[in-house]
Nucleic acid binder design. Structure first.
Lengths: 250, 250
DNA sequence: CGAGCAATTGACCGGCGTCAATGGGCGTGG
DNA sequence: CCACGCCCATTGACGCCGGTCAATTGCTCG
């Protein structure tokens, strides 16, 4: 089937919504999603998209690239809470939580699709079943943060990093971006440190250990998993919390 | 005004919903909330209410007592993600996230009000504005976890504990349960350790330090804050993430 | 009255932070 | 075209926060 660029560009978004929905979308629902007025914008790496304290009037979906949600302490220390992969809607929450309590930034170069809150509200009014899909999307986001918190609180650096890699490969795989368990890993080691709650020096040592254990390689900003069961075991990784369909967690 | 026990028992719930709502509830909405069929049950301390993997068909609100949400690693280490105070609805998420990814347990003795998902769905259909209030409630829950994650990842044990105490006193204060910045603190030190991501031994040392700094006292399961600005400063506490009304964060 | 757990404290240890130095890649300006 | 600056990656030396182990003292409850 031939796709207009217009349709093609929001492919990841549609795919993600269909994954989140517990039911099969009707043609009308799918059409309404495609008809959603969307402003596409290109962002450079390491740019803030929205900031803590903002009161956004629109949400955005990630069409390509990797982004992250982070918060900072008053002392200026950063903690990354989640990474976002294509198809995600990182600030769905701003629909009903008017003041943002988080920052969202690009990690690699990203294409973003902005949609006004008004349009989303109209969509939900016209297609009430989509309300629960969107709600569910925000609940899944929350589940990811909780799992990540379990890591930060209760696993050592080695397991934490293994877990992050397991999650990224699985999520990117679910949108077709991790063939053969190989994916982009655009973040620098200082950035990884902010996600893992450790220092960049220790990130480096931990990566070295994961490599020498034969679990992964990491070169030219690409991560390859060589021993998937081994990495899962090191991480204590169970993909259930991602709420993907079974076919997407292989 | 005289209140029937029926109405009185769900006071904390109504109060909480009104805090979460961005608008003033109509009489009809309030009446519908009061009419919601609710099964009240008494739970002992340290009992699981729902478990990871469950598929609940009802949600519950905490009418009295303190509860917590926790997860465990495969290695058996517990991490408490949030505490719940009266009025909260800890498992609202189960409405649309059919398989639970968390455990919820009592900390002190609790009175719980169970409401079937069906009844909640009916309520939202009849009063669409309540949908966004409930959605918003789940978003606020998520915001608490994110702030807690920032602590766990980026603050030392001393600041972490100070932050937990700030949050509890503020949230309990918002439902009238922390007069003079004094409140119940029913959790044991091993339990606090699971919330803070440290060991019980170190919890003990940290409490000792907070006491000797003159910030708090802790006796007979009661916490008293003596130096509120000092405790906030030690924690780097900013109550914005709680999404309370200004009058409730004093 | 003994079992079991919470609270407390001391001694010791290890994972991770801090500090510092080196080398490499890349952009910018002379 | 090269020099310089800047940041990332990497590694070693060393120190400290918080973990581990263990002992003591209550308290509660059967």
């Amino acid at each position: 089937m031939f796709e207009t660029p217009h349709q093609a560009s929001r492919q990841p978004f549609l795919r993600r919504i269909e994954t989140v929905a517990l039911f099969t979308l009707s043609d009308a629902e799918r059409a309404a999603l495609v008809a959603l007025p969307m402003q596409v914008a290109q962002f450079e790496p390491n740019q803030d998209i929205v900031r803590e304290g903002d009161r956004p009037t629109r949400s955005f979906t990630l069409l390509s690239g990797i982004a992250c949600t982070y918060k900072s302490t008053l002392a200026g220390k950063r903690q990354v809470m989640t990474y976002h992969v294509p198809g995600d809607v990182p600030d769905f929450q701003s629909l009903y939580l008017e003041v943002l309590d988080i920052n969202i930034a690009t990690v690699s170069a990203c294409r973003l699709g902005f949609v006004s809150h008004e349009a989303v509200r109209g969509l939900m009014r016209a297609h009430p079943r989509l309300t629960e899909v969107f709600w569910r999307a925000t609940l899944i986001d929350a589940a990811l943060v909780r799992e990540w918190m379990l890591n930060t609180g209760r696993r050592d650096a080695y397991a934490r990093m293994a877990h992050l890699f397991c999650e990224l490969v699985t999520r990117l795989g679910a949108v077709g971006l991790a063939p053969d368990r190989t994916c982009e890993l655009p973040m620098t080691q200082p950035e990884l440190a902010d996600a893992l709650g450790i220092t960049s020096v220790h990130v480096n040592r931990t990566i070295r250990d994961l490599k020498s254990a034969g679990l992964i390689t990491l070169r030219d900003r690409r991560l390859t998993v060589h021993d998937w069961p081994g990495l899962q075991a090191a991480a204590g990784f169970d993909p259930a919390y991602l709420h993907l369909r079974d076919a997407e967690t292989r």
